[in-house]
Design a protein around this nucleic acid. Structure first.
Lengths: 339, 339
DNA sequence: TAACAGTACGTTACCGGTAACCTAATAACG
DNA sequence: CGTTATTAGGTTACCGGTAACGTACTGTTA
């Protein structure tokens, strides 16, 4: 079943070629689906490939081809975040369909960690990179520009991308939600978020929301930004903190739905009626919100669309097809019933 | 700043060596931290590495070394699952610390998809694989055993692993919870789960629970297994289904905490008191449970311990250190207040 | 029918490192 | 003090593919 011969115990292309009675180069052409061989030759080669159980060596292929590999590097803040996970799933699927392998890195919102990872991944000659850090070190930007490697920055629509950008406009999401909350007559509004290391994209939504408040001559009555990762309990606890501090609020804008849900349950546990006593707004249309007694007021985003769009954009760039530098993924404010 | 010379525009090891006035081989030794060079030589080489901005070519390195690369392939059912994400995060961190790169695949609980992915990843000569599918095709098992590549199967403690296994004992988790629920005097017990494609590990917990019931001369009053992925709403909806079907239950065992939480809110929305009217038990100690009014009765598992343990086990095997074939990650039943 | 283009291959060199082996100096030793 | 280990470093071959180019052979056209 398994015929060993080369030192590594694998069947090499040379052996396949010999068995098929053609040159190594011809076998290579057949396997790469290049041109320059007859149908008969293809059959001979493929028959031996099957019979010998030939496994192509992509390391040798990448090495020999002088160009890049079929590796795509993808960096995210955390893998253990349902929303990043969803994007990863969709990206990974789209990339795999075109024969790319995903190499993953988690930078935990630290540009320095990201830089280290990028240097590492570049030594694999990746065909492209997908980055979801929203801020990079100067060295990172220079390095990537110098290498000329296709790079897609995702999540936030970056107006001056390293190469390309696919994402949501977080600032606008916040601004739109700000106007919506104001339109419901609230004026005494707080913000609850969490930043473990460096500010994430929630900070941009907060800014957008704040700008809507400013247009109405207002500002956040209070802000509670925990030094922690976003989570249900962070939302719960952050709400407790902010309410203890300011006494009461008309409404709270949360960094994301997970925290908003945590806040929802804190308010409920204190017997507050939502939205009569307090309004709650989130971001991200997370699945967890589906079990709330009311529909959560939030911004609906499609993680699937983002992931697929990012993968498609990168692949197009790799293939040299003309490509937009910036692709916005649409978002929609879902009024819900919690504001 | 950037001195180009070779065709690819990169600085090669040869150039570094020439600049440092040593041979290519010596430069290679220095960079790999091998032996056979003086401190002075190291400094000369490292200075040129810095000055020229040398980026090692791991593809060439892997190719030249005849052996395996520093790639570790990791497959999970879904990336967009908070619990798998948490394990990935911890695994990825532990692997990165030792210089390994993670290549990820999602098999969606399909052994065939997993097989395709494994064939693909093998062409990168990975140093090892971490698999979280709990069932594999025959071809997969044969292929991996024939290759002799280090493989760690995680999540479930596999009693006949391909190579090594690190995980929880899901059957025991279910059995223990079954005994606990029985000890609270419940007898009319249902099960709610979800299997999108093939049965996942929840099925094993269900079996364990069922065996505890059987020892008491009982069985599940009803089982509701949705054809869907686990999720909050799946738990909500599954509970609605099962209760509509059987009228009432003393308690429900859920596939995991996410579904249990969904069920909790369904019951709450129907005005049922927990645990007086109905008991709820889950698995996985997920963060979302922290916002419930009561502590959820569940099995506490450490995703971090699992991830780190899996990575450590694999690395030890790669390095040829003696290693247990099976490593159990402890779990603990948290009585909580919902049963 | 000679000149030419196109197809189907084969040959050669090379990618950028690393393993294996070799050499020259120095240190250790009886 | 001669012999033997040890250390620092150089030489050579090679990994398994692919790019670039060369060469038969076939069919077409002036």
């Amino acid at each position: 079943m398994k015929s060993r011969s080369s030192k590594r115990g694998y069947v090499s292309l040379t052996e396949v070629a010999e068995a098929a009675g053609v040159s190594k180069m011809t076998a290579s052409r057949v396997l790469r689906n290049a041109t320059g061989f007859s149908e008969e030759t293809r059959n001979k080669v493929m028959r031996e490939v099957e019979r010998l159980g030939y496994v192509p060596d992509r390391i040798a292929a990448a090495f020999g081809s002088e160009q890049t590999s079929t590796i795509v590097g993808v960096s995210v803040p955390y893998l253990s975040s349902s929303i990043f996970g969803a994007v990863l799933d969709s990206m990974n699927g789209a990339l795999a369909k075109f024969g790319y392998q995903t190499m993953i890195g988690a930078h935990e919102n630290s540009p320095e960690t990201e830089e280290t990872w990028i240097k590492n991944i570049l030594s694999w000659r990746p065909a492209g990179l997908i980055l979801s850090g929203h801020s990079h070190t100067g060295a990172t930007r220079e390095l990537l520009k110098a290498q000329g490697i296709p790079v897609v920055e995702i999540w936030n629509l970056n107006t001056s991308p390293i190469d390309m950008s696919v994402g949501f406009n977080h600032y606008d999401c916040g601004h739109e939600m700000g106007e919506f909350v104001l339109s419901k007559g609230h004026t005494n509004i707080g913000y609850v978020g969490a930043d473990a290391q460096a500010p994430g994209l929630g900070a941009l939504r907060r800014k957008g929301f704040a700008s809507a408040l400013k247009s109405a001559g207002l500002q956040f009555a209070s802000e509670e930004i925990l030094i922690d990762r976003s989570g249900f309990y962070a939302g719960y606890y952050g709400t407790e903190n902010i309410l203890n501090r300011v006494g009461s609020l008309d409404a709270i804008y949360y960094q994301d739905d997970v925290m908003a849900i945590g806040g929802f349950f804190y308010c409920q546990s204190r017997g507050m009626r939502i939205p009569d006593d307090i309004g709650i707004a989130g971001w991200g249309s997370m699945e967890a919100a589906s079990v709330l007694p009311q529909r959560l007021t939030t911004t609906v985003v499609s993680t699937q669309a983002l992931g697929k769009s990012a993968a498609d954009t990168l692949i197009a760039r790799i293939r040299g097809e003309p490509q937009e530098d910036m692709v916005i993924t649409p978002t929609r404010l879902a009024p819900g019933g919690t504001v």
